[in-house]
Structure formats: C-alpha cells, structure tokens
Amino acid sequence: MNLVEIQGVKKHFGEIHAVDGIDMHVKKGEILGLLGPNGAGKSTTISMIATLLEPTNGTILFMGESIQTNPKRIQEVLGFVPQEIALYPTLTGKENLQFWGRVYGLRSSKLKERISEISQVIGLEERLKDRVDTYSGGMKRRLNIGVALLHKPAFIIMDEPTVGIDPQSRSFILDTVRELRDQGSTVLYTTHYIEEVESLCDRIYIMDHGKIIAEGTKESLTEMIDASEVIRLSVEAVDPMLITTLQELKFVEKAVVEANSIFLTVKENGNHYQSIMNALKESGTELKGMDIQKPSLETVFLHLTGRGLRD
C-alpha cells in the first residue's frame, strides 16, 4: 500500500492555479524527490499533504484514509521541515526542542531522552543552552530539522531544507536524510537543486506550472529523452536564424535556448562539431564556449519545458 495517495488535487488562489490537478503517490520507506523551479507548486503541494492548506479539489489519502476528513491521522506521525526557520529565536535550542516535543506528546524522561538523541543527530549538543538567535544559519537549519524528528515520525516532509546554507551543513543534512530512510522513515524531499535529487532520491516527480510533467527514477527519467549527449554552446547573442539552422541538422533532436546558451540534444554519438561550427560561421555568431554533457535531470527538465530549473 502506498503511504500517501494524491488524486486529482488542485489548489487555486483566486485566479492563480498553484496546483492544477496532480496525481502522485509516496511509497513507504522511500525518499521521494519533488523537483521543480521556484513557483512550480511544490510548496503548495506539500502544504496540502501536511494539512496546512485544504485542496480546492481532489483527495489526499494517508494510509488509505482521507486527511481532509481526518487530519489527525497524518499529523501525529508527520515530521515537517519547513523551508523557513520555524523556531523561537529568543528561546534556547533546548527550550525549542522541549516545546515541540511537548506538542507531540513527549514528556519528562522520554522527552529528555529524545532531546539528547536528536541533539547528537544534529550535532548541537554543545550549543543547546544558547539562544537560537545566536546560532549560525547552518545551525538553525539543523535545529529546524531536529525539531521535526523529535517524535520519531514515520513520514517526513522536507521543503528545500538546504537553501542558503554552507556546503558542510548541506552535506550533513543530506546524510541525515539517508540515515532516516535507512531507519525505515519515508521522506518527501522538495528542492530545485538537481544534484541533491540525483544523489538522494529513489524516485522523482518533476513539477512545473502546478502540474506533474514527469515521474520515475533518475535513470528512467533520463531515458525519456532519446539522446546520447547534450551539447551546450555559449554565445555572445542568440540569433533566431541560427536556432532554425541547428534544428535542421539531422543529428539534432532538439535545440533549446536558455539565456546566452544553446542546448542541443543530440541523438547519436559522432563527429558533429564541424556541422555545428559551419552553422555558427554562416550566421556570424561568435562561439564563446562549448561543452558536452551526458543527459541529466537538468536536461530532462530543459527538454520537457524548454527552460532551465533556475529560470
């Protein structure tokens, strides 16, 4: 049985269709990645799963039960890591953990025990007695995660937990997520960092403009585009005629422009460079750089939407 089932869910804010009829599911014990650019509808989707927002249409089931009619069912076993630092800055790290532990019904010795365990997991044992407003950004992020893990949640939602932190803390957080999965938790992880999804997630949904545009494992997604490689051309300025010329080359599957770069999805290996150089010369475009990439989630997204994830 799937842990979470989302069926035809929509969320409209007036005229804005933030989520526009999505179907997805979360399997027990997996790390599910929800990938998409800013404004794709990821945060709205997880806010609905977390019972923070009510869907305009559709159903969300947790363990086969609608969370719209019985939100407590998911709330008791959910660990939610919001994108923002949702802590009390004037309280100490320990007081924050104590409060959120109490919110989830932990008391006395059990609470103490969990605070001790979690402070080790997030590496903040030494700073627990300090006020949160004296912490660094990375430390606040880690405490933000620790708060969500206190009650040993079976299902954890992480909304872009690595935004704006140092590489060391980022690596620490990603390792923590893997450990959680290994301990049997299910994780729904949203991000717009391709490399995080590629290294972390068992399965991925790609969202854009409120819709799910692709779903699968990293391998199955990259197989979606019939290409052996992607050539990126960096140019001074993009000439529309050049794009037409490049698309007419028989080995080019698709040509996509992103800022001053042209991405060519190439069907088969071979020496295509002379043809490309000729096209550039004909249009009078100066080439500033060229690199060849294996198909990745970035190129999948580019291929599906015609734009980059960080647009």
Partner: peptide, 13 residues
Amino acid sequence: KQFTWNRQMISPI
C-alpha cells in the same frame, strides 16, 4: 511571521 504558527497548525494540537 516566524513561521512557528504553521508548524503548530500541522501538529496534533
């Protein structure tokens, strides 16, 4: 403002 409200709203309380 400090986002703790949302966190409380999705808790069992």
